[in-house]
Design a protein around this nucleic acid. Structure first.
Lengths: 333, 333
DNA sequence: AGACCTGATTTGAACGTTCAACACCACAAA
DNA sequence: TTTGTGGTGTTGAACGTTCAAATCAGGTCT
């Protein structure tokens, strides 16, 4: 009735504990004939190695911590679900699982990770939403807790995976230029937010490349990432004497706000968002899609890889290219 | 350098292993003076009991399985993030954590849960998206794997927590009736989907209660849960000789489709959705909000409770009331 | 005084696995 | 014959914890 153990299998196959273990972990050490006998016993008893015992013995839990945040009040469906699934799927191949935990803030997150790590519950942790002065990377490094980050700090002396945000907004601008737009605005986070700055940079350099940067100071607006704010900023843009004909927004949330204003005023304004949230589909909003599945795999590799090949000094970070999804919001007029 | 163990603490405090264990698990068995000495040593060494060793000894992992699904292609942000966070938060209090796993389909899910359970990695599992003929509850029961379900089967002889879906659509209809609507349509899943049927039922009985059910056959439409289908069904409704003035949709996805048609045609049609997804906020769509946080707590209680109080035969299931969030889509005209 | 309790603490064992060391055999080399 | 050697298989020990049983003082009762 209790799940069978190596001992049970050993008895059934007429061999010793260790031989059963060898069949599973070092089959070449066991004579084929014996191996088959053991395998038959394993099959017949439905034996599964106890992970807890393995963990205790190996001092490794094959668990990876992941902080699950409460949903941001006005965020339109985060990357959460996609990233979580991608990580879980990628971890499966490496026989690792995700352990979810909650925390009140980044410092509390480090505290909780430390507790879980010291308790042997997790081997490492995945962190995301990295700010340029993020306290977590240095803290985790100090605590000698392995981690991989989705995003970069200023000095990224750690394993990270990131989206090429600048390339994303650059693609959006290229797309709009191709469709004939010449005055293209940008709506983004307040300066200082790493992700926002990179998205702004992609917009700026691409405009510059096409010689469209002149007199575009009023086209670069920043503010809180909310729908209401997106709507407000769009109004400001439209009221300018030389309004833009297109907008690149740093998030779908801001873009959705723009769309609301556009539809209210029946204005003609092409819009491209960022993140390709489900909402973008619902609003027919063009958006820059992040290859989250690839991010998940890269993060797992980044976290678990070093143990396998320490010699090869892999690049500390990996930059993945996003993809522009064109929909009606930027393709109709 | 290795994390300290009970033995280290014992040595530091000049007592034995077991006394340290007792300080933590049965303080009343230890003389106050000794206890303080041990507590000081624990503090000083930064000792944390090793969960893996505890698990091995106690034959309990304090882990709960949760299947993370790939995001549905055209769903507008699922309950996932909210439910996951709620469960993680509720589990924290009970010192339990969530372990994520993936699966291809319900049968594969049972297979994977069984494997994890037999390997001692999880004590039980949370399941959701229950269909009326769902294979998981009977299978899990047969395997003697504890579980709690978000949703009900036909014969619910297991622990479940559910939203009162009928009450949700009923509230939506009441709201619309109060605002003067008399022809109120319903858009839902094809019949046979448990959740959809209950939502339809709430609509129907409330219409009936107000004597508005006559000649409303053409107002009950079903179909695939997609935005495009919502738009299509809305068109069908509007083209009827006596079109409705309001629609209750079984999901925000369908409601978003309705809104698209409404805005395209500049039609006057009040809309209420279901789930209060982030998209609902973006579209100013009234929607029925599920109390997911409460669901999380109830599910944890349902899963872990029985072990505590077997004697009290708690109700097998628990039904929670949703809340109608009124926005412009149903309140402007 | 001896038997008997009660409370505080210790020691032995076990959870299930795998590493390390050792035993055994057949066979080859010296 | 002796000495290795490589392939197979075994046993002992350990990971860190807690349950169960044993020990030991200090006192009370008869």
């Amino acid at each position: 009735m209790n799940p069978p153990t190596v001992e049970d299998v050993a008895r059934a196959a007429g061999v010793s504990r260790q031989t059963v273990s060898n069949v599973l972990n070092a089959p070449q050490r066991v004579r084929p004939e014996t191996r088959q006998r053991v395998e038959a016993a394993i099959e017949q008893l439905g034996y599964r190695p106890n992970r807890v015992a393995q963990s205790l013995r190996a001092a490794t839990s094959r668990m990876i911590g992941y902080r699950i945040e409460p949903m941001h009040p006005h965020a339109l469906g985060s990357m959460h679900d996609r990233l979580l699934h991608a990580l879980a799927e990628a971890g499966r191949a490496a026989d690792h699982h995700l352990l979810l935990f909650t925390a009140d803030d980044p410092d509390d997150e480090v505290t909780n990770v430390d507790a879980l790590h010291r308790a042997g519950a997790i081997d490492g942790v995945m962190i995301y939403g990295i700010q340029s002065d993020d306290p977590r990377p240095p803290a985790l490094r100090q605590l000698r807790i392995p981690f991989a980050a989705f995003g970069r700090t200023g000095a990224d002396a750690h394993a990270w995976v990131d989206i090429d945000n600048a390339a994303g907004t650059a693609a959006a601008v290229e797309h709009l230029v191709t469709r004939g737009h010449r005055r293209i605005a940008f709506l983004g986070y307040p300066e200082g937010v790493a992700v926002g700055d990179r998205r702004a940079e992609g917009w700026r350099t691409t405009l510059d490349k096409h010689g469209l940067l002149d007199g575009s100071r009023h086209l670069d607006l920043r503010g809180e990432d909310s729908l209401a704010n997106g709507a407000r900023l769009a109004e400001a843009l439209l009221e300018h004497p030389t309004p833009p004909t297109a907008v690149v927004a740093a998030t779908d949330t801001l873009a959705a706000g723009v769309l609301r204003t556009v539809r209210q005023r029946h204005a003609r304004l092409a819009v491209v968002g960022f993140d390709d949230t489900p909402t973008a589909g619902a609003l027919d909003l063009s958006s820059v899609r992040q290859p989250i599945e690839a991010v998940g795999h890269a993060m797992i590799r980044a976290l678990l890889g070093p143990a396998v090949s320490v010699a090869q000094d892999e690049p500390a970070g990996q930059l993945l290219a996003p993809e522009l999804i064109v929909r009606a919001s930027s393709a109709l007029h």
